[in-house]
Write a protein that binds this DNA or RNA. Structure first.
Lengths: 148, 148
DNA sequence: GCATAATGCTTGCATATGCAAGGAATATGC
DNA sequence: GCATATTCCTTGCATATGCAAGCATTATGC
């Protein structure tokens, strides 16, 4: 295990899982959403017109189309998102972020920022934060899923 | 979203998910194991005597104890791991890595190294790989789950 | 020593997810 | 224009996972 590629991949996956586990706990207890629901809302917020097709959401979130269908149903029921059929193509059922959904997302983002702070605070300097940001940008840049 | 903590946390989570999705595909088709099974084998390989209790595995893998129970059952059936009851404490049921499990893990590690190469190759210099490694080490250092 | 608490594991139930099939709408080849 | 293919979404089934309860074993308080 002296391969730096392997070491970095393992550390990347493990630190991400740690952070995700922490987020899951607070998202669930404080905001009543899952981490995946948070990411779904984030994708919508960053999309033009705050909307995306289910297929596009599936690709960006690395889940199947059926998962998106089933994730969206309860979110639609409580008004965080809306359904909107395309005028030209009746197959497309856009998922649209509602104002209630934006509010919920803003609250969750505060928790996200707090946890992100815990994760990096007192471990990295400002300069290192920028280094890390630049390095990771090369991994996520160009993917349509990139939220940053 | 000008908070560098938030940006870095998002990029960390997203790049990890991308890598994990790629690994899942090849692990499943080539080696017949899931990413989580791979990590379970990795934890055993790094443990003293190549064995851990189910509770310890659950903590390190950020899953519930029942998940470990259910993950281990089929792996035991095909001989990748063994069960071993502790002499002093009959509650403890260690999961032990077998030689067949080591072989399977070695093959999967080759795939892992290949995918890790794809992820970082042509994006980062050697110096940057070392920088990244050092930064991430501070995140995972000290956790018993750390595989590196 | 014994009653109670704590620990380690398993199991029933509920939820989450992927795959494959199906239905509806649109695109393509001719 | 029409038959066929493709695309988008949904649904049935199988698997994966967490939580809470239960069981067996060990630790603790007195």
């Amino acid at each position: 295990m002296d391969d730096l590629n392997v070491i970095n991949a393992l550390r990347l996956l493990q630190s991400a899982e740690e952070l995700r586990a922490r987020l899951a706990g607070e998202f669930s207890s404080v905001h009543g959403i899952s981490v995946n629901e948070f990411f779904l809302l984030m994708q919508l917020r960053n999309a033009p017109k705050q909307r995306l097709s289910r297929t596009e959401l599936a690709k960006r979130m690395h889940v199947s189309a059926s998962t998106v269908t089933r994730m969206v149903a309860p979110m639609e029921k409580i008004g965080m998102v809306d359904r909107m059929i395309d005028d030209r193509d009746a197959r497309l059922a856009f998922v649209v972020l509602t104002s209630a959904g934006q509010d919920r997302l803003s609250e969750a983002l505060a928790t996200f920022a707090k946890q992100a702070g815990y994760a990096f605070q007192d471990r990295w300097t400002d300069a290192e934060m920028k280094q890390f940001s630049a390095l990771l940008f090369r991994l996520v840049a160009g993917t349509p899923a990139n939220l940053t």
